[in-house]
Design a protein around this nucleic acid. Structure first.
Lengths: 355, 355
DNA sequence: CTGAAAGCGCTTACAG
DNA sequence: CTGAAAGCGCTTACAG
């Protein structure tokens, strides 16, 4: 008992604590209604085989006692949790939040709740989240992976857990995966610039160890090669530069006799970062380049000129992956599948600028 | 057995099914290691009081059997799920996804996983999600409410469930809530326009039944009144117009001798919708008004002119609410609290345009 | 330092 | 249409 409590407080606290530690159970409801535990279970689960009179009596006891079924017990008995987990880089990123919403909708349609967890591209965090979800016995797992090795999941998959990877394939693990056509998307974006007359095209991509970043760079190289254009390695910039670095690199790329006339940015963060730098330099030391970005983003149509993008389908990735997961839960047995979603070019002006 | 299966398939399927239905338990590990169930429990939970030799033996059995603790059982026994739920309008909206990320971080810091659910401002959906989470016995609930009545949660709170409301207060229920200073924010935005010389200011807000929409409108009215400016009710537009309606209303507001010289938009969806309409009408039938929007958004600095906003702190809302929730879980007993987070004006050009 | 027994709150399998 | 018994896989309380 805390210092300064009066007797009334003591009772109030005892009630609070006991309320917290003990809610009405089916047994309590059964006793209150004068029926058996099993009959309460039938009523709670909407089992038809209960006479209306009994049902009403039980229903009254349920309301009176504030009973709500404890799903932890149900989960333990049935082995199903009606929950799935989604692990991604950062739910605050519009790409991932759109994907999350699509997953949520498929989950809801299948009577499942959704756990979400951001791992910030940290392999350790991914593993920690994934195994925590496994311990909770989620019915399935959806992962935008950060790890470079997924053998840690092998025992879980062997035990029957279905997992679907999104946007990047699993490593050292056989599992379903849903991807964007990164190579084809980048290739089409570069081809678009080449068709517009550009022959010297700079490429800014994410850290090359990231699957999608490597794929998109490959698309760039293959498009250039297809059109018989040489690539100067100085035109390629991979990583996550800070503002100052980016600005310096842009100056380097966009000035001098060997400058590029167009830029391709490998994801929307890079596109926006480049836009911000270009906007800051109105008294620019360089001519504004043509620009095509991988990934659409809100307001891409409202800046001037509008930004031409290679659009992915984040909602489609989430939806297709979740549907595949529920196919597995419904009993689909087939070798791991790899699905690839197409991209589309949305021309808005920045990519149609002449050299 | 499916048609076309060969005996090998049958065994494979049986193994798959049995793998799904039966994982190694602590009992299995105990038998395998030749120790008692309790000792396995001690090892799994990192209990110090186990001699190293025993610990290693158990650890080996755990790995060999692919054991992972079943948290459903643990949850049933302990009454704690180490999970919290977050219900909001739409996780794909940047405002909510930012908020979600902040909640996730606080949850992770407290060893909790996070359930998220979007209810699309549908009261029925909110209730369904909330009660499903209650049945799972989440340790706490975070709600951006859609419902106009929360008595349905009273039995749950009475049973000890802590709940914190975010962005909008609960109705007919005593619970913690974290709000944005909507009245003050809108008032400061309007005052900013008035200081710039505007006397005729149009107001576009969300459906007035939404708490924040009503509060912000109140801020508009009070700022106008404070400065002795009359408000023509024709200047006020509440709701969610489609493109054609919005365009018609903008033409009405922005043309003629009685036109307004500035607009205040009550949320970022309206701000963007207005921007889109203004951008479409380069051969506009009206002069471009000054514009201040409630809510910041990405790229607000990249359109021309940059958009002046009254910025909220979505991450702050999520963080503060989650911290309050964990304070309650840590035993804080105090009357329900109402916290209000301040807004700030970010001037970028659109709001500094002269009448 | 280790273990045997009870029990968390449900559903399952079976009986009548 | 209704019920008594067993058990899901852990942790708790207690004993030695």
């Amino acid at each position: 008992m805390l210092v300064g409590m009066v007797p009334g407080d003591r009772r109030a606290e005892a009630e609070r604590v006991s309320a917290r530690s003990r809610r009405a159970t089916m047994n309590d409801v059964a006793a209150h209604a004068g029926v058996s535990l099993k009959t309460v279970s039938r009523v709670v689960n909407g089992d038809a085989a209960v006479i209306e009179d009994t049902r009403a009596k039980v229903q009254r006891s349920i309301v009176e006692l504030g009973f709500r079924r404890n799903d932890s017990a149900r989960q333990l008995r049935t082995g199903r949790t009606s929950g799935i987990g989604l692990i991604l880089e950062d739910v605050a990123d519009p790409f991932y939040s759109t994907l999350t919403r699509a997953v949520e909708q498929v989950a809801a349609a299948n009577g499942c709740l959704l756990f979400t967890g951001s791992c910030d591209d940290d392999p350790g965090q991914e593993q920690k989240l994934a195994l925590a979800l496994c311990a909770r016995r989620v019915d399935g797992l959806l992962i935008v992976p950060a790890a470079a090795d997924h053998t840690y999941l092998a025992p879980e998959l062997a035990a029957g857990l279905p997992a679907v990877f999104i946007d990047r394939p699993p490593v050292n693990l056989a599992a379903d995966v849903v991807l964007t056509d990164n190579v084809g998307g980048a290739r089409s974006g570069i081809a678009h610039l080449i068709k517009g007359g550009h022959r010297r095209i700079g490429y800014l991509g994410d850290t090359p160890s990231i699957f999608t970043a490597a794929q998109r760079l490959e698309g760039y190289r293959s498009a250039m090669a297809e059109h018989g254009l040489p690539v100067d390695e100085e035109w390629i910039l991979m990583g996550r530069p800070d503002e100052a670095q980016l600005r310096a690199e842009l100056v380097r790329l966009l000035t001098g006799p060997d400058r590029v006339t167009a830029l391709f940015t490998g994801n929307n963060r890079l596109t926006v970062a480049v836009l911000r730098e270009l906007a800051r330099t109105t008294e620019a030391p360089f001519a504004r380049p043509a620009l095509v970005g991988f990934d659409d983003f809100e307001l891409a149509d409202l800046v001037v000129p509008g930004i031409t993008v290679v659009a992915q389908d984040p909602a489609g990735l989430g939806r297709v992956a979740a549907e595949l997961l529920f196919d597995r839960l419904a009993g689909l047995t087939a070798p791991p599948r790899r699905l690839t979603l197409p991209t589309s070019i949305i021309a808005r002006g920045s990519g149609e600028q002449a050299p």
